[in-house]
Amino acid sequence: MILITGGAAQGKQKFAMEYLGLTKIVDGSDCDFSEIKNIECITNYHTIVKRLINENINAVEFTKKFCMENQNAAVIICEVGSGIVPIEKNEREWREIVGRCGCIIAERSDTVIRMICGIPTVIKGELL
């Protein structure tokens, strides 16, 4: 697996397309939960987490299962934890779960990339 992270609008998806050559990218904000076990790349993973929570599905278990079933997937997830802890309980819970899911994917990834201003930094493993 490969994980690409960074803040919003830092060039994560562009990197997946131009550098990794990925063309089939599904969007976590509207894809089927069941389809992701076969995908090449998923973007906005932090959003699929939100949708899972809304459907009362355990996002951490979902993520573990996804990592087992699709060990070659590329995952794009926004860094969402660098602000004030939200007052609203749902927002707080979502941010925490995104953090946990990100850690799970990172742990199971051979390579983790962090993007800033369109520049990739390899923070785990190496780019092949």
Binding site: A8, H46, C78, V80, G83
Partner: peptide, 10 residues
């Protein structure tokens, strides 16, 4: 000089 503004998840 620029600014990073998109990492708070809001």
């Amino acid at each position: 000089v620029t600014n990073q503004v998109g990492s708070d998840g809001i």
